[in-house]
Nucleic acid binder design. Structure first.
Length: 470
DNA sequence: GCATGATCATGC
DNA sequence: GCATGATCATGC
């Protein structure tokens, strides 16, 4: 068959791909040849390969166009309320071959062979729409930028080291910054062999984190009228220095100083100690000053490396006995959503697989002292513990067994308590009792169709033992 | 003193 | 108006 492009010539492939811009699959492919069972979620890329570029999908370690050394990737965009475009998800790359990778180094790895140069095709996802009608928005050839290479190499080595340690089954996306190891496969039963342990490991693929994909989108969209993400000033990660090292170095001279000393040092004189949220505001302001972030923006939105890695910054006040004064809350969950989720795709697991930056202050003679700064992500065993809390919560909502008893103004619930699990528990997270989300099942005890918003919390004892003291 | 339920304050 | 990060209040 005569191809409409030359598969040995990179430019020819890219030129042909550019014709996809502002089109849909229906407009460029022979739709009648596509079977109905190929039209579901996840088939966009396969249809593109088979019915536009005319080659059979492959999953070898070579790129899709081996001679031109070009990999083809398509991925969905979403549109925000403010009309800006963002990546809908992480960008999944090649499957990690646990057995082979331990004999490779970064430069000659399957990852580099496959993804050094990628032909990126971004389309706008619209719920309910036939995938044949998705609008193709961006077509671009992209290669690993040198500015990110050091961090990505570090990430690759972190993943490889864990496999070499016989801990492939404990991999988590939170282990790394830009390049993650995301689960891949139909469900948690998709496992494969690892070289230094008998334990089967979940199948995983390299992936660029969503925040990193947003950065790619912003850089390739250039000065387009439609906004595709944001370019953020960098804290200038210099060669051979990790994000951890840079941030630690910035905080190091300040460890042991009091909140008042730090406020003076950074000319932050606008905080009234009588304000209810004084400490959280002071902590945040200090963190911003240390990292060079203007006071009116979020750290996560301003620092390029934090945005790309989707690092979550949390400040914690410890009591003199090292116990955090409060547990740590997350956004409230919607009852109607959690009952439809599976653990693998759940919001809670997604949060727990993030990289966190914890900033610890501690009370000392009624003063607050900057004690420690720590990058952290949840170890695999603890994610399994959190899963129990999540599963129990889902079950309770599903059965409508939330309320156990009403005592005056207080309702006792069956949600997992702090004493049940070492990692996490469920508590209200609302403006007041009337601040509710609808229930999928009427509550058996109160007959209510809605219930006060709740969220998952990290136990303060867990934060003390596993994040602060460890 | 802590666990659990309830609520606050801000910014977008 | 509400999402988010956080703190308050009360009973055991």
């Amino acid at each position: 068959m005569n191809l409409p492009y030359n598969p040995k010539d990179k430019k020819s492939i890219i030129d042909f791909a550019k014709l996809l811009k502002d089109k849909s699959l229906r407009q460029v492919c022979d739709v009648n040849a596509i079977k109905n069972d190929r039209r579901g979620k996840g088939h966009f890329g396969q249809i593109l390969e088979e019915f536009y570029f005319y080659y059979k999908p492959n999953s070898g370690s070579e790129p899709d166009f081996p001679i031109a050394k070009l990999e083809l990737k398509s991925s969905p965009l979403k549109r925000l309320k403010n009309k800006e475009y963002r990546s809908k998800e992480r960008l999944a790359l090649n499957i990690i071959n646990y057995v082979n990778v331990v004999n490779q180094n970064f430069e000659n790895s399957d990852f580099i062979k496959k993804n050094a140069s990628i032909l990126l095709i971004f389309y706008l996802y619209q719920a309910g729409q036939d995938i044949l009608d998705y609008h193709i928005k961006l077509v671009y050839e992209w290669s690993l930028p040198s500015i990110d290479l050091e961090i990505i190499k570090n990430d690759w080595e972190t993943i490889t080291q864990k496999i070499a340690d016989g801990r492939a089954h404990e991999l988590s996306e939170g282990d790394t910054f830009y390049l993650g190891a995301c689960t891949k496969g139909k469900n948690s039963l998709s496992v494969r062999k690892q070289p230094f342990s008998e334990i089967p490991a979940k199948q995983r693929a390299y992936s660029f984190k969503q925040g990193y994909v947003n950065h790619i989108i912003a850089s390739i969209a250039g000065d387009k009228k439609e906004v595709y993400g944001k370019l953020i000033p960098s804290i200038a990660v210099t060669n051979k220095q990790t994000i951890e090292e840079i941030v630690s170095a910035k905080f190091k001279p300040l460890i042991g100083k009091t909140d008042l000393e730090l406020l003076v040092q950074f000319h932050l004189d606008c905080f009234n100690p009588k304000m209810k949220d004084y400490y959280s505001r002071v902590s945040k302001a200090i963190v911003k000053s240390v990292l060079g972030v203007p006071q009116n923006v979020n750290v996560e939105d301003y620092i390029e490396e934090f945005a790309k890695a989707e690092i979550i910054v949390r400040t914690v006040r410890l009591k003199e006995n090292n116990l955090p004064k409060e547990d740590i809350s997350f956004p409230s969950f919607k009852y109607e959503e959690i009952v439809k989720e599976e653990w693998e795709g759940s919001n809670f697991k997604a949060i727990l697989e993030h990289k966190f930056l914890f900033v610890f202050f501690q009370f000392e003679n009624d003063q607050l002292v900057l004690r420690k700064v720590r990058f952290w992500n949840m170890p695999y065993a603890d994610i399994l513990e959190a899963e129990k809390v999540w599963a129990k919560t889902k079950e309770i909502v599903l059965k409508g067994h939330i309320v156990r008893e009403v005592k005056g103004k207080t309702r006792l619930t069956n949600f997992p308590k702090k004493t049940i699990n070492s990692v996490s528990h469920v508590r209200p997270h609302a403006s007041n009792a009337a601040d509710t989300y609808p229930l999928p099942t009427k509550d058996k005890f109160t007959q209510a169709k809605e219930y006060t918003k709740h969220c998952f919390w990290l136990n303060n004892t867990y934060v003390r033992d596993e994040i602060y003291l460890r």
